[in-house]
Design a protein around this nucleic acid. Structure first.
Lengths: 217, 217
DNA sequence: GTAAAAATTTAGATTAGTCTAAAAAAATAT
DNA sequence: ATATTTTTTTAGACTAATCTAAATTTTTAC
């Protein structure tokens, strides 16, 4: 049983480690958690004692397989709640994160199963991120940012990165949402900006924006 | 801003004081909160400092008007979530309390307004308890338990007391739900048991059960 | 109206999560 | 390869919420 704080640390470790593919350093985690390195060291000891991460002193932490599945359960809850907030309550895209951060810690297996059913067993959340199933399995979709694509590419937006609420507002405004048709019309070598066709209207976007729009690879 | 624990204490004080109509003693509160009197005394100091209750040493606590409206907001959230769990997710009556106890502490005014709208602005929760409005106003319904009624009374169940999950299971089984028609057929002087007609079928209930079924007075 | 019982508060300690400052280890730079 | 810088850990302290045991106040009982 993890406390709310422990769950948040574990989730951050999971994300920073890219789903368990690399180890996470104390300072990285301190920055992500908006706290101090000393606090991280303390918490790392607690999480190690609970066997959800392993810690090699001075060299960072890794999530264990137990930790991975616990993290995925929290992520499952987060993404299901985000889907609920957008699809059922009519929240905008960029408004859901903070609330979902709270809701993800509600403890009731039955609630999550019922919610999943109520939402029609969605596979992805409103940003296009995959929702882990009730066994803690995550289907990783092979995605690529559109700044990597060539002129002439046509397809559908699969997901957008949801790191920043202002970015999300902008993406919503230009209708860059999962499922929307997209075509690469032009690319400027100098600054990497692009001209694209989204939902049948032409628009110029900066390289930074293009790095946050993903399609299936 | 109250902590989760402070919210729970305040809610308990509100309920024990009958919505602020009498003062609450330390031991009462300790029993309700499943804690020790000494812990209550400590918490009472914190809540007094936050001006949601007033405390006269050795004579108990009273909710202030600020405390009353804060308690009602928590109750509003609790009852809206219970309504959601039953009406939208298909939870049974007796399963909702524990989950709603967690959900009531989610902090987002927008969420509650959206949820209220999504549910169609319900006036009462699944047990028939009134839902405070977004101004923190509670419409108190004049209710009376059916053990107080005379033979021949006919009406509709307005609410049931939701103190005990086993009672709720039983009430659900006999279809004693808010809105159901009810008629008093007979009353045994010896033990106070009753024969009643609920949703057109006759049933005998004990005095204890009859004290938990309420109609509009 | 005082003595015993019950209720409440205070005192001092504990745990979770956090902090600052100091110590220790690792990385780096010449 | 040694000194400096950076990163991490340890040590010691703080707050919130809790506890036990002791002290205090109120109530009750004769």
């Amino acid at each position: 049983m993890l406390s709310l704080t422990e769950e948040n640390y574990l989730k951050a470790i999971y994300h920073l480690s890219d789903g368990g593919n690399r180890s996470v350093l104390t300072n990285e985690l301190a920055e992500a958690m908006n706290t101090k390195a000393a606090s991280v060291t303390d918490m790392v000891k607690k999480l190690s004692a609970k066997a959800v991460i392993s810690h090699e002193k001075y060299y960072g932490v890794n999530v264990t397989s137990k930790g991975k599945s616990e993290a995925l359960m929290v992520i499952r809850k987060h993404r299901l709640w985000e889907t609920f907030l957008v699809q059922k309550l009519g929240f905008a895209w960029d408004e859901v994160h903070e609330v979902a951060e709270q809701l993800e810690h509600i403890n009731s297996a039955r609630l999550i199963e019922k919610l999943d059913e109520f939402l029609g067993y969605p596979k992805v959340d409103p940003h296009g991120d995959p929702i882990p199933d009730n066994k803690g399995k995550l289907k990783i979709l092979p995605q690529i940012a559109i700044d990597q694509l060539n002129i002439g590419y046509q397809g559908k937006i699969a997901a957008v990165k949801d790191s920043d609420s202002n970015l999300l507002k902008y993406l919503d405004k230009i209708e860059a949402r999962p499922g929307t048709k997209i075509k690469i019309l032009g690319k400027e070598d100098y600054d990497g900006s692009m001209e694209i066709l989204i939902a049948d209207h032409r628009i110029f976007i900066s390289k930074e924006v293009s790095q946050n729009i993903l399609v299936i690879e």
